[in-house]
Structures are given as C-alpha cells and as structure tokens.
C-alpha cells in the first residue's frame, strides 16, 4: 500500500526531517509511526498526503509513484485517502453535518446517498444526533471524532492520522484507537503517528520507530508482550 524507498526530506530552511528512509506498509495493515518529537513522523504523513514532496527517493502509494503525480491529479489522489489531523482542521462556521459531508460534496455524491453516508459515519464515531451542532459546541474529543467521520465517510482504502489522540484523556484516547481498529478490521489500511507508546501497547499493531529521520536502530521503548513483536519495517 505504501512504500518509501530511500526517501529524504529537506525543508527549505535546511532542516533534514527525513534521511534515507525506507519502509513498507501492506494493504490492510494497522501501523504506528513512533519516535520522539522531531523524529519525522508528521513529515512521513505529509509526504503520503502530498502536502509536501520528497526531496530525494521514491514514495509509492497504492502502486502510484507520487513524484509522477501532476498538480491537477492531486485532488483525485487525496480523495482516496482519509486524513485526520491533530488540530482537527474542521470548518468552524458550519455544522457537523456539512463538515462530514465535505468529501462527498467534493466527489459529487447525490444528496440522498450523501445523507445516508453522513449519518452512518457519524453513527460509527458515536456522534449520531450531533449533525446540527457547530464544531465549537462539541468537546475536543467529539471534534476529533467529527474529523474521523469526515475522513472515513468517503470509504477510502487508506487512513492516515497525525497524533489523533494528542490532547485527549486516556479513556477517550483508547476509544479513538479502538475506532481505528474497527476500520482496520474491515480492510482499511491505517497509519497513525503517535508517541503515546502506552496507548499503542494497549491497542496493538505494528510499529515503525523513527529517530532523527531514520528508522530507529532499536526500539527504545519496551514492548508489551501482548503486542505484535515486529517493530521494524521490512
């Protein structure tokens, strides 16, 4: 599903966020990107979402080399990915329904179908009945779930999430992770950047540990005996 081949990313300010990074995520996997602050987790996700482009190396998603995607092809590409941001990136001037419907409006789904799918997405994240609330009338955790509903409403084969539980209390964080797990169970590939190792242990899933823009030589954190032992990318 995702393949990074000797990828380097240098930001315009000269900062080397990724150095010679290779990794693979197979279709249907649930993978956590871990590592300390500044390790390059967000950068990996930004390259996948084509928010930024790699400086060197190959990024392939769903068999498509991203370097070859032209500007006008980016929207169609992004419609295939559900993106969840730590800061939600909701449209605060319109109700939950409109926020969640946005990807469907973009891809031109007819109104009746749209209504059905928005309701089902909100139902899945436990926000049924909040259609007409404005985002700011919701708690942070609820806003995060609106963001998740928006990401999954178009049924994308790939979900990427950057610190989706960043500032949620532990119970809520676990709820959100379980949600991702459920999407993964129906075949969606999920990539989550998170430094909350305790939480990751509870959820389980493969980890790709980054350190200073490379794969970490060793996982610096303990692994719960219950979680999947494969720590490194193939």
């Amino acid at each position: 599903m995702i393949r990074f081949e000797r990828v380097a990313k240098r930001y315009p300010n000269g900062r080397e966020a990724l150095v010679d990074l290779s990794l693979t995520v197979s279709a249907g996997e649930m993978v956590f990107l871990t590592g300390h602050s500044g390790a390059g987790k967000s950068t990996v996700l930004k390259l996948i979402a084509l928010i930024d482009r790699a400086t060197r190396g190959q990024v392939e998603v769903a068999g498509q080399s991203l370097a070859k995607l032209k500007r006008h092809q980016i929207p169609a590409y992004r419609q295939q990915i559900g993106i969840i941001f730590q800061d939600h990136k909701l449209l605060y001037d319109r109700p939950v329904w409109d926020n969640v419907a946005l990807p469907l409006i973009i891809s031109g789904v007819a109104r009746k179908e749209m209504d059905k799918r928005v309701r089902s997405a909100l139902d899945q994240v436990g926000l049924a009945g909040h259609e007409h609330n404005l985002p700011l009338e919701l708690s942070t955790g609820e806003q995060q779930r609106v963001g998740i509903a928006r990401a999954v409403v178009g049924k994308p084969p790939l979900l990427i999430a950057d610190e989706p539980t960043g500032n949620l209390d532990p119970d809520l964080a676990l709820d959100i992770m379980q949600l991702f797990k459920r999407f993964n169970a129906v075949g969606v590939t999920v990539v989550i950047a998170s430094h909350d190792l305790h939480l990751i242990d509870q959820v389980g899933g493969r980890r790709i540990a980054l350190a200073s823009g490379r794969l970490a030589a060793t996982d610096t954190t303990h692994t719960s005996p219950l979680s999947t032992p494969s720590i490194y990318a193939s």
């Binding site: 979402a49 929207p75 990136k89």
Partner: peptide, 8 residues
C-alpha cells in the same frame, strides 16, 4: 482544508 480533503 477543502483542498486537503481532495477539493480541486
């Protein structure tokens, strides 16, 4: 945001 979720 609209462009991020695939708006052309």
């Amino acid at each position: 945001v609209t462009k991020l979720v695939g708006g052309s």
